[in-house]
Design a protein around this nucleic acid. Structure first.
Lengths: 125, 125
DNA sequence: CGGGATCCAATACGATACTG
DNA sequence: CAGTATCGTATTGGATCCCG
């Protein structure tokens, strides 16, 4: 939304007391959601493939994460009636629109985490 | 590998298995951090003012949030030796650099949360 | 004024086992 | 293959009281 000025619109963050932002954070601010979204961005993915492509995630957490994303309309779940079952997950357009903000955060992470971790290490001596 | 502009760099997110991104999320993905950062972006702020400007936060959580931000070098804490004490908080340059990604997320929130909440409401009938 | 200490409830997460 | 069910632990956040 073309915020072309250099004035920092922190009102966007604090706007309604931060309720909107917190609603989003409550959903994505966990261990797996953004990783799953990022993985789905590449293509339509089956459950097991997702399980392999997100290293460390348990079946339980993958299921929970996907169910939550589905409830919010960020992911579609398609069951192909076969034996063995074939279930595919795909981002909706809303889900895909989350990628750029996620990338912004990831970019910041890559630039600043090394410094942050160095600082943490110093203080734990 | 910096030429493909429309290529989705989700590798930024998944890069190291998402460790960097998760490190950042572990810090900011809580109820108060981004709200405190957004409030501090405007000026140097005293503890009590912060307490009033972030509605709903408890003293305990404000203290914890500020301590964590300080440990990571995103916020400076300045104690003025007076009675009664005067303690001021301010963003570091690293802390200020977090504002744009936070705004990106907040912008996404404002555009999409209404739809998400409508969908949630439908499913809880 | 700016916290710290303590207690408590809720939730998030992981491990394991089982199933149509 | 794609889950569900159950259990146990760790972490998070809120409430309250106290202190220099």
């Amino acid at each position: 939304m073309t915020e072309g000025s250099d004035y920092q619109h922190t009102c966007l963050i604090r706007g309604d007391g931060g309720r909107m932002l917190r609603t989003v954070l409550d959903r994505i601010a966990n261990k797996w959601t953004l990783l799953v979204v990022a993985t789905l961005d590449q293509n339509v993915v089956r459950f097991t493939d997702l399980h392999h492509q997100v290293p460390g995630i348990s079946q339980r957490m993958l299921t929970l994460t996907l169910r939550n994303l589905e409830k919010d309309g960020l992911v579609t779940r398609t069951v192909h009636p076969q034996v063995p079952p074939r279930v595919e997950y795909e981002l909706t357009s809303t889900g895909r629109s989350l990628i750029p903000p996620a990338l912004a955060l990831a970019g910041w992470a890559i630039e600043n985490v090394p410094e942050i971790e160095a600082r943490r290490a110093l203080q734990e001596e």
